[in-house]
Design a protein around this nucleic acid. Structure first.
Lengths: 219, 219
DNA sequence: CTCAATAAACTGACACTGTCCATTTTAACG
DNA sequence: CGTTAAAATGGACAGTGTCAGTTTATTGAG
């Protein structure tokens, strides 16, 4: 779960090979340090704590230094979200690899990965879906979102036996269930959802069985 | 769908009977006007546009006047959310009344009401679940949230024929599906969800049939 | 090696926000 | 009518995002 290593191949820029500094660059890799600090603030204080000035302060640069790498706050949050999204995409894709001949297990693994990611790093998960904070049309965001989505789609497509008519809607239904439960829980809604220890395993079990039901339904 | 009328009996204060002004009160019903203006800003500019100073400006009072009625911004947003939540609770309860002997239809009506409310007034719906903006432990919020939740629960409890073992989890699953799809759509996620006109009716139909499946499942 | 070019980083400023404070205004009541 | 207490005011403060002008450091050409 080393998010730092993920930073290195984000945005199509391989920072490992970028050893030379560009003109005027006094700081080593300010862009990546800002992202790292932004992730730290996100984890510890939530998205409210991720301010341009705080990120700059914790990195030890002037308050306007980030502007050279992220023209606006939305750009900074979008870049952070891109890292997080890539992380989630990697995890889900990894979870279902090798299970291509067992679609049911693969879907369970997909859902389980989402649950784990969301409950391990709730602030990261929540950032991904805040439309007013990040640029959802950002190409990297779109790409990584598509990776997660198509991972789920591919599982449904493999179901040759079933005469499935509307794969996309099935995927949306499955994802609605997963995402809905996670959102509800992270937002602290529903009285029954407050007791995490005893309820979470039971809820997860039922949700997984319901998802399996969606998968096996004959439309 | 007159939200203004709803303002009158919120927070246990019946403002209709409160004709006399209290000491020092120069403005007619500033508290209610602030709420009304807050709702207007929420609808037109989203939650980001709801600032204490903007609400005060549009109401024609000093920037610090709202502090007498809402000590903090979270209190203002919480009061707005309480109005919205009460509205949603009223709509859902109203939608299922008279359908107590037809649980399937009632659940469909419940879901349909949530869909309609969310797509008619997306900013209001989204405000309800922003934990970091509103005080989820507010008694009015909790009460109205409970009203929505117990409305759904009552429908599942009426199903005497079915040997349902875990009503709460079924309710959570149904609500996860509804809330998950709505959130996904309002956040603009998933490529397939972008074409509203053609996809929304189809998605809704399938989701409703899936919800029906949850209702009829034998645990 | 020298030095202009250039991108990065810095300092300063502006408008805006939420919140606190002291002050003034206003309506109700003895 | 005067007292009183709540409401509303204006000012101030720290914090924010963003913009502008300036300085600095690195690069690469002469």
């Amino acid at each position: 779960m080393d998010s730092v290593s993920l930073l290195s191949d984000m945005d199509g820029v391989n920072l490992k090979t970028k050893q030379k500094r560009t003109a005027g660059q006094k700081h080593g890799d300010l862009r990546i340090e800002l992202l790292r600090e932004g992730l730290a603030l996100l984890d510890t204080q939530g998205v409210e704590g991720v301010t341009i000035r705080a990120v700059a302060r914790n990195t030890g640069v002037a308050h306007s230094a980030p502007a050279n790498h992220f023209p606006t706050k939305q750009a900074l949050l979008t870049a952070i979200a891109a890292v997080v999204f890539a992380n989630l995409a990697d995890l889900t894709v990894k979870a279902i690899t090798g299970l291509s001949d067992k679609p049911e297990q693969a879907i369970q693994a997909f859902a389980e990965t989402c649950f784990q990611f969301a409950f391990d790093t709730p602030n990261r998960y929540q950032l991904l879906w805040q439309r007013q904070l990040i640029d959802q049309d950002d190409p990297v965001i779109a790409k990584e979102m598509e990776r997660v989505y198509s991972a789920l789609l591919s599982l449904l497509r493999q179901d040759h036996a079933n005469h499935r008519v509307d794969i996309e809607t099935d995927a949306i239904a499955i994802w609605s269930m997963i995402h809905g439960y996670i959102s509800m829980r992270l937002d602290g809604n529903l009285v029954a959802a407050k007791d995490t220890v005893t309820n979470l395993p039971r809820h997860k079990a039922i949700l997984l069985s319901l998802i399996d039901g969606i998968y096996h339904r004959d439309s």
